[in-house]
Simulated assay, not measured.
Amino acid sequence: MSDGILVESDDAIATVVLNKPDSHNAISLGMYRRLPEIFAALEADSAVKVVVVRGAGTRSFASGADISEFEQVRGNSASAKAYNEHVAAAEHAIEGFAKPTIAMVHGYCIGGGCGIALACDIRFADERSRFGITPAKLGLVYSLESTKRLVDVVGPSRAKWILYSGQHVYAEDALRLGLIDELLPADDLEKHTYEFAKLVTTRAQFSVRSAKRIVDLVLAGQTDDDEVTIDIRNSSFDTEDYAEGVRSFLEKRPPRFTWS
């Protein structure tokens, strides 16, 4: 695909590649514009069960937004408003994607790159990775929604430390803070990420996607079951995957789930 993004598929796993390695995969406005279209197409593709988001190569996930185009695309408040709307739409498309998403982070994951990684469900990173959210270095203000994603994973005081300072968070500290979920040697990261993605594709997809939806409701502040969540849970008993799960358990064999 154009605009610095590639989409690759291998069975039930799709990979979205931020593909500007010469600039550490800096994210252009065109790339932000493409992401909602890409994720809409992947959601409509019943063959896709998990999406991995990564940067091209092993030096960077993404070094941030492409600052070289800021004078043109964020030169004043009007153009900045339009730009920010495209960024928000891209992050919403990833966060609101019905299927599981995994950010595979090699190296730098800074600014807008960190925003995209935080919009994913899970983040795996290598030991050389470093993270940073840097509006305080540029005179910018991070959006409330993007800030909430950061607060949800590291807590309010550490989010303030990251945002006030603009300092990089190195891999081991990122793991300790919960900014990433697993830390791997650089040579093992890709293999581990795709092994986990493959594992998720073997699980009951109604269960997986319902779990994602319910966790998102919890993050949005819901604390009690309502008609929607009760219906989601009860509906699972009418799926073929539930029947297959019970059969496979009784027959002492791996399940063969078919819902997609």
Rank of each mutant, 00 (worst) to 15 (best):
D66C: 04
K252N: 14
E8Y: 00
I27P: 00
A119T: 04
F97W: 08
A98P: 00
H192W: 02
E71L: 14
M1W: 03
N25Q: 06
T58N: 10
P21A: 09
D22N: 15
A90R: 07
A40N: 14
A62I: 02
G155Y: 05
C120I: 03
T258I: 10
T201C: 10
E240T: 05
V53W: 00
V73R: 09
I38Y: 01
A98R: 12
V53Y: 02
I214M: 15
V169D: 03
S9L: 05
D22K: 11
T58V: 06
F237E: 14
N19H: 13
F39W: 09
H24A: 08
D11C: 00
S79L: 15
K198S: 09
V246F: 08
V73T: 15
V7M: 07
S236E: 15
Y194K: 08
G221H: 08
L199C: 00
R33E: 13
F206I: 01
V154G: 11
A125S: 10
A93P: 08
D10R: 08
E172L: 11
K191F: 13
K191H: 13
V105S: 03
P185G: 03
G112I: 05
N234I: 12
L179V: 05
G178W: 06
K49P: 03
G30E: 10
I110D: 04
S129Q: 06
E227Y: 03
T239I: 10
T193R: 04
